[in-house]
């Protein structure tokens, strides 16, 4: 048993040294998903790319810290943050009340409406409200009416959505009895199943839908129905952090404000989304 004690202490000691060394260098470890184009995705050869990768590097420059970006499955991205696998999340994550119960958020750095993606020849392409947007914050009644207007066409259809997202919560809350909801691990997977014809539509952020349309296999995909903002869909995409990390939040908040002010976010979002995704204050 003596052997185990020595071993255990040795392991602990080495773990502590690693922890200590990391603290000295001031490295911020940021998790992203690596499968949510154009926010963050993995390019040829396995390199991380996207809006959030560019933005993270920019923000870290402003904060004068070294950043390490790691890929992490969306499913466990919040528990792993609280398990101290990394310090921050930048993965197209919206601020919601539910998430605020367990983690903290910076100020939002981007915001896009959410809606359906369908194939051009699908009857769903004529979904009510295509081309318009409505916000739960500003016009809650109008938003609910818009959802009602979808229902006749959506009845009995299968809709793919990424699990554990504001999008899946939105469908669960408003359309549970109208459609069959199928939850996927990544948006890339529901995109594959949309082209494979296993599902009739996908529900995602407009930024992600735009990026999907860019791919040759999806040139026949269109964005359908009213674009939705606010409410369950959250108050914009922000950096997620542990609740006790006040210093890091301050750093990110200041860096994001500066990046909004000097137009970096507008420039980056137009580069990646083809729309201006700067959050409206």
């Amino acid at each position: 048993m003596k052997l185990f004690k020595t071993l255990g202490l040795g392991l602990l000691a080495s773990a502590l040294t690693i922890g200590g060394a990391a603290a000295q260098e001031k490295t911020v470890k940021i998790a992203t998903e690596g499968a949510y184009a154009p926010w963050n995705f993995t390019g040829a050869g396995g390199k991380l790319e996207g809006f959030e990768i560019d933005l993270a590097n920019d923000l870290c420059g402003r904060m004068k810290v070294k950043c390490e970006i790691v890929a992490q499955d969306w499913d466990g991205i919040i528990p792993a943050l609280n398990a101290k696998k990394y310090d921050a999340i930048m993965a197209g994550m919206n601020i919601t009340d539910k998430r605020l119960e367990v983690i903290n958020f910076s100020l939002p750095y981007a915001a896009t409406p959410h809606g359906f993606g369908v194939m051009k020849d699908s009857p769903l392409a004529k979904l009510a409200g295509t081309g318009t947007t409505v916000s739960f914050e500003k016009d809650s009644e109008g938003a609910k009416k818009a959802i009602e207007a979808w229902k006749p066409l959506l009845k009995g259809k299968t809709v793919g959505v990424q699990g554990s997202t504001v999008n899946s919560q939105f469908l669960e809350t408003y359309l549970k009895d109208t459609i069959e909801i199928r939850e996927y691990k990544t948006t890339e997977q529901h995109d594959l199943d949309l082209t494979a014809g296993r599902i009739d539509a996908i529900f995602a952020g407009h930024g992600a839908l735009k990026a999907t349309q860019e791919k040759p296999e999806f040139k026949d995909m269109v964005v359908a129905g009213t674009g939705m903002r606010g409410g369950l869909l959250g108050r914009g995409v922000a950096v997620g952090m542990r609740k006790d990390d006040a210093e890091l939040k301050k750093g990110f908040d200041e860096a994001i404000q500066a990046a909004i002010k000097d137009g970096t976010i507008k420039r980056l979002s137009e580069k990646w989304f083809k729309i201006d995704a700067t959050p409206q204050v």
Partner: peptide, 14 residues
């Protein structure tokens, strides 16, 4: 397991 993953996404208590 699927339900477990879903429940975690709602409660974050893995």
């Amino acid at each position: 397991t699927g339900l477990a993953a879903k429940l975690i996404s709602q409660t974050f208590r893995a």
